[in-house]
């Protein structure tokens, strides 16, 4: 049974629907990504999951609990890191960890948590003096301190440098490996592709697609990209005969073909038949970026 179930979720602000029939289910122990352009209803949806917003319609269950009606129980099993939620400027890291551990009946040891998150050297530093990455690590620690079954992380790595971002990713994977389900809101494709077991792509308040990162890429046109510089030009007729090839592009003597694995095999045998050498041959998967852009295109048909 899924640990988070959302169906028919609706929320409007001033008559304008922001979330309009969102539906998804998160399995226990996975990192589930919510991806989408700004204003697609990502944050509002997770706020409904966390019980911070009253939904207009639909059902939301987290481990069988209704986030609004069973608020008290929910806060005991759900750790949350929200956008734009800070701590008291002059509270030290240690004080923040001690304070938040006092909120839960069976908290994780804050010392180990600080150790795991690389905050041990910062325990006496005030919140206001921490760097962006250190703040984010402290927020993760606070989200985990109550030994939650589920953590919601909203745009966790926004504003971090690439190094800090990669460190944070490693942490989130460790959190998942310790058995905690992670609901991750992001707008970084690389982050979603690297971390998420499954992704719901939001578009205008709805889930436009829900699949594994690889699945999303596969279902977009031109999932596999073959690119090389042929030793002599290929015949257009030959190219047109390639199975499952979506597009061809000639540029600066390089030929780029979008297709599938079948296309790759056909290209290789074509080159062998015509005795053409493929210089600098690259076969890559199309990125999530491309799949995302295609899925969230404003095109309505």
């Amino acid at each position: 049974m899924p640990i988070i179930e959302v169906s028919g979720l609706r929320k409007a602000y001033g008559g304008r629907p922001v979330v309009d029939g969102v539906e998804f289910a998160v399995e226990e122990g996975e990192i589930f990504g919510i991806l989408g352009p700004n204003g697609a209803g990502k944050t509002t949806s997770v706020e409904c999951v966390a019980g911070l917003r009253e939904r207009d319609a639909g059902t939301v269950r987290v481990a069988g609990l209704d986030p609004r009606a069973d608020r008290k129980e929910l806060t005991g099993i759900l750790g949350v890191q929200l956008q734009e939620s800070e701590l008291q400027e002059k509270l030290t890291v240690r004080e923040a960890l001690e304070l938040y551990s006092a909120f839960y009946p069976d908290p994780a040891g804050w010392r180990e948590l600080a150790e795991r998150l690389g905050l041990t050297g910062k325990l006496t530093t005030r919140f206001g003096k921490l760097s962006g990455g250190q703040k984010q690590r402290l927020f993760i620690a606070l989200a985990l301190i109550g030994r939650p079954r589920v953590v919601v992380l909203d745009e966790l790595t926004t504003g971090l440098d690439p190094r800090a971002r990669r460190d944070t990713w490693k942490l989130i994977e460790e959190v998942r490996d310790s058995g905690v389900t992670v609901l991750l809101v992001t707008h970084f494709m690389e982050e979603a592709q690297r971390l998420c077991d499954r992704i719901a792509v939001f578009k205008q308040g709805r889930v436009a697609a829900l699949d594994t990162p690889a699945g999303l890429i596969r279902r977009s046109a031109g999932g596999t990209v073959i690119s090389f510089a042929p030793s002599r030009p290929l015949d257009d007729g030959d190219l047109a005969g390639l199975p499952e090839a979506e597009t061809f592009e000639h540029r600066n003597g390089r030929l780029t073909i979008h297709g599938t694995d079948t296309t790759v095999n056909a290209v290789i045998s074509l080159l062998a038949r015509r005795q053409i050498t493929a210089h600098q041959l690259r076969v890559t998967d199309s990125t999530l970026d491309e799949a995302f852009l295609e899925l969230t295109e404003a095109r309505e048909n």
Partner: peptide, 16 residues
Amino acid sequence: GYRERGILRRMSTTPV
């Protein structure tokens, strides 16, 4: 300030 800087919001995600 506690309200504006989301300190109350963060606390509202805990059992307190």
